[in-house]
Design a binder for these strands. Structure first.
Lengths: 364, 364
DNA sequence: ATGAAAGCGCTAACAG
DNA sequence: CTGTTAGCGCTTTCAT
């Protein structure tokens, strides 16, 4: 180590300086830092990882899509991870990937990550398959828990059912007799949660449970679903499992001569950036991607660095229903007064310079 | 190394098996593989990197946004990188990040990556600043070249000007006297290219160059721009630098009582998944993110593994104008026959189950 | 408060 | 075809 020689100290001392270890005199520290500067030295992380057994990196498994949700989550994770002093390794697994999440996790383990984040897990149990993952580092699952074994398994961002309930109740409060659901692909736990929240709400209110239409998150699938729905005798209210599908759905309804929200109310999910600017501006549930990622990561890092301590508890993410112009009371039947009151907000349609906090919002 | 002992061979032989090196008898190979299986052995990448001096990983610098473009590029990169046998390290840099791209690159270098991808570079030269990056591994810049020094600097996906030309010409061919431009933030090279392509086209056709309105990629900024444009006496044709802004723009125009495309034609850029399903379906330029990422990475890996060979040449990405219903000939003035012919396509508005190839498209 | 010595698990460069 | 001998650049452990 040239730096050590230049500074006239031992290798170990240089190491101490770099790691902010105690017991280094100010003078020595300064000399070392100077030598480092002069030589343009940067420490070798591979060697560090080898010697210490920790790579100071966290692996993320994402779906190989540019879908707003997964992409936002990934960005959220990246944003936090650097502050914690860890590096990020990313592997993605496409739907239909033969090796799937297991393969992705494996490749991360190969890389020697200290912890793993599984963003948006999907159910990959084949016809018979039981994928029992076994991992020897802490894992954070963003969305819902798959069956895996690890020293610590944390979950975060699994409040989708509550949010789905909020969306559904919004529609019910508006006076709609029932609410249809345009679900996401049921292999995704996130999609299941939303479906479940919707179902539970209707059941709790003693409403009829219309058949579920399943899409694949894409606007195209929402469009197809809308065509179907319109043909089958249009519903008065639909809760779509994401905004893209909601947009496709609205398009199909519009083409079928149905007006939104006068004839059909539509609620989306995510609050993608354009949601406020389409016609009509979309009522939707905002997902707190950043908060979820941030909080989850904090807990993961804690678990990595304190293997024996109790894991940090999760906190409930806020539910943020953004009411815009795609929802209204049903036109063709008597509306209960209560609902009408709730719904009588004018101007829901003007997307003012979208306030950071999402404008009109309510939480039940 | 337990595996070596169990298989009754030397450590080096195990190494050979793992690296698919020649000169290993089938029998020995089998024995090693068995031992590996039995012990659940996985090789330590840190040690490998330390000993070999190569980390077999590629670093990506992204902007910390969930913007469709950057996110798609990242996904595209990830999708290819695993096939090449490399791992991906991701660092992002938010706009306004003090350390900026330089800091991101630095942290990647710290991690010992073998190559770097800079996705969507932005100009970070401050009031005075000259950021002369010096990197000792090959770099691929997706979008346009910043000032950096590296053994190899590859660029890809810098065909935005050509695409912008296509968009602008489409509008001109429709018979519009001139075309306004809703530009992206000019710190982004991608935004500059589009602006340049637009400007060059108008100039080449001897048209008037209307003042440029600059947005920040968001639908919100497009909305604000639309309000401005409508107040200043509406244009008949606008080319927006991305779809999100186009959507905000259309919203503002609509609220101002202007019809799209009857009063104003709008062309977007990117072809985001919902573009075909908004009202009206958006005419836009599809960006070949996947192709760009894939080809670029192939070239980067080549440069990494053949430091002395000539870098692979880039190939021109296809230009794909997707004509939908947001563009039409201008209503209020005589339209040249040529343009009218080009434009007389009925049904541009029906988003059929979006064909893989994007439906109606043309290239000049 | 500092240093010396001993590896971490692998691959490189040569033998055989 | 296979084995031996050295490190890669750091952290660890134990002295001092």
């Amino acid at each position: 180590m040239d730096v050590a020689r230049l500074a006239g100290v031992s290798q170990k001392t240089v190491s101490r300086v770099f790691n902010d270890e105690p017991y280094v005199s100010a003078d020595v520290r300064r000399r070392v830092l100077e030598a480092v500067e002069q030589l343009g030295y940067r420490r070798n992380n591979a060697a560090r990882a080898l010697a210490s057994g920790r790579s100071r990196s966290i692996g993320v498994v994402t779906l190989g899509t540019a879908l707003y949700g997964p992409a936002s989550l990934l960005m959220g994770v990246e944003r936090v991870v650097r502050d914690t002093g860890y590096a990020l390794r990313v592997v993605n697994t496409m739907e239909g990937d033969p090796s799937g999440v297991a393969g992705a996790v494996d490749s991360l383990l190969d890389q020697g990550v200290d912890g793993i984040v599984i963003s948006e897990p999907i159910d990959e149990t084949g016809p018979e398959g039981e994928t029992a993952l076994r991992v020897d580092v802490p894992v954070l699952v963003l969305g819902a828990p798959p069956g895996l074994t690890a020293p610590t398994v944390l979950t975060a961002g699994d409040g989708a059912d509550v949010m789905a309930r909020t969306a559904t109740e919004h529609l019910l409060n508006l006076g709609h007799p029932t609410v249809h659901h345009l679900a996401g692909p049921q292999r995704w736990y996130a999609a299941r949660d939303r479906l479940e929240g919707w179902r539970a709400t209707l059941t709790a209110h003693g409403r009829e449970l219309p058949p579920v239409v399943e899409g694949d998150w894409s606007a195209a699938s929402g469009y197809r679903a809308g065509l179907e729905l319109a043909a089958d005798g249009a519903p008065t209210a639909v809760f779509a499992a994401n905004d893209d599908m909601a947009i496709g759905l609205i398009r199909a309804l519009t083409e079928a001569g149905l007006r939104v929200p006068q004839d059909v109310s539509v609620v989306g999910f995510d609050d993608i950036p354009v949601a406020a600017y389409i016609t009509p501006p979309l009522t939707t549930v905002r997902q707190p991607f950043d908060t979820v990622a941030q909080e989850g990561l904090k807990r993961l890092v804690h678990a990595i660095e304190n293997p024996d301590a109790d894991p940090l508890p999760p906190s409930d993410p806020p539910v943020d229903l953004v009411v815009r112009a795609s929802t209204a009371p049903p036109a063709d039947r008597t509306t209960p007064a209560r609902a009408r009151r709730t719904a009588s907000r004018p101007d829901g349609g003007t997307p003012a310079p979208r306030p950071r906090n999402g404008g009109p919002s309510s939480r039940p």
